[in-house]
């Protein structure tokens, strides 16, 4: 296809190519996020060629390839993706798509003020998924920045209309917690990464397409728990600035620009004034569900 609209976390993203040489082919994880219509929040124009960065573009952030084997994280010196900037106005994300042993340099040019972005893919196949990993997450990340929303490492469930978010770094039990609730009939919004948005004075959390055929889901947000394993179930409410910095620590952030940092701190502070936050130590069994419900 030459164009399609995605609805991810309520953001309508139009992907468009006016070139005839290739077809846009979203991967299967995006299929259920495709929506009809022409209206969109951001337009991404796809171009089938390499992009030469302007000479005055300054590299402001570089993410290494990170391998995690047996819980040991290894930061390789190889660059995975990087961000370039011109005068804090125009940004470029550069990464490489690897497909069938073919490496293709990819550049996304965007601005936090503009809703029309450009994506250059060096060597496209006849059918190309323009939003391959890691660009999909990066694009969504900057949409959260523009909209003062929050992207967070967390699992989230909806149980009888209430939305519970369990946040923590890798190994703290996000997936374990999601599975416990799933076994009791809760709807799992996602088990690893969520976008939190304030819509009409109410907070919601959304999944993003990560796995094949991911269905777009969301839930009102009732409570945030910062989780860790414990010998017994225990809730410790946290308030004020302490709550803000604990939640901030689990947010996904590329903190290379003051205005982005300020927006993120602002968003999390506002959320923590509306949504209760607590540390939660839990045993990995179904007793945690009643424990949480009894302590609301």
């Amino acid at each position: 296809m030459k164009s399609y609209n995605l609805n991810i976390a309520g953001y309508i993203i139009r992907i468009e190519s006016d070139e005839n040489e290739f077809e846009l082919k979203p991967s299967s994880r995006f299929i259920r996020s495709i929506v009809p219509g022409e209206n969109h929040e951001v337009l991404v124009r796809v171009h089938p060629n390499a992009y030469l960065l302007p000479e005055n573009a300054e590299k402001v952030f570089s993410a290494p390839v990170i391998d995690e084997i047996n819980f040991i994280t290894n930061n390789e010196s190889k660059e995975f993706w990087s961000v370039y900037c011109i005068d804090s106005k125009k940004y470029f994300i550069r990464t490489v798509y690897t497909n069938m042993n073919n490496q293709s340099e990819v550049t996304l040019e965007f601005s936090l003020c503009s809703k029309e972005w450009d994506l250059w893919i060096e060597s496209v196949a006849e059918e190309t998924d323009p939003l391959a990993y890691p660009l999909d997450g990066l694009l969504l990340y900057y949409l959260t920045v523009i909209n003062s929303d929050i992207m967070i490492h967390a699992s989230g469930v909806n149980y009888r209309g209430r939305g519970y978010l369990f946040s923590g770094i890798s190994g703290k039990g996000k997936s374990t917690m999601a599975n416990i609730w799933k076994n009791d009939g809760a709807k799992i919004i996602h088990d690893d990464r969520l976008i939190i948005r304030r819509i009409d004075k109410e907070y919601f959390f959304f999944n993003t397409p990560v796995y094949d055929n991911d269905e777009p889901l969301n839930s009102p947000l009732s409570r945030i728990y910062l989780i860790d394993h414990g010998r017994k179930n225990k809730i410790v409410p946290v308030y004020g600035a302490t709550a803000v910095i604990m939640v901030l620590a689990n947010c996904i952030q590329h903190n290379w620009a003051r205005d982005i940092i300020a927006r993120r701190v602002e968003s999390v502070s506002a959320m923590c004034q509306n949504i209760p936050v607590a540390e939660l130590y839990f045993k990995p069994d179904s007793t945690i569900i009643d424990f949480i419900l009894d302590n609301e």
Binding site: G240, A241, V244, I245, L248, N255, R258, I261, A262, V265, E266, S269, C272, Q273
Partner: peptide, 14 residues
């Protein structure tokens, strides 16, 4: 980056 929240402040060094 500083931000007041209630009676407290959050300071993020850059």
């Amino acid at each position: 980056v500083s931000r007041r929240t209630g009676d407290e402040y959050i300071l993020v060094p850059v």
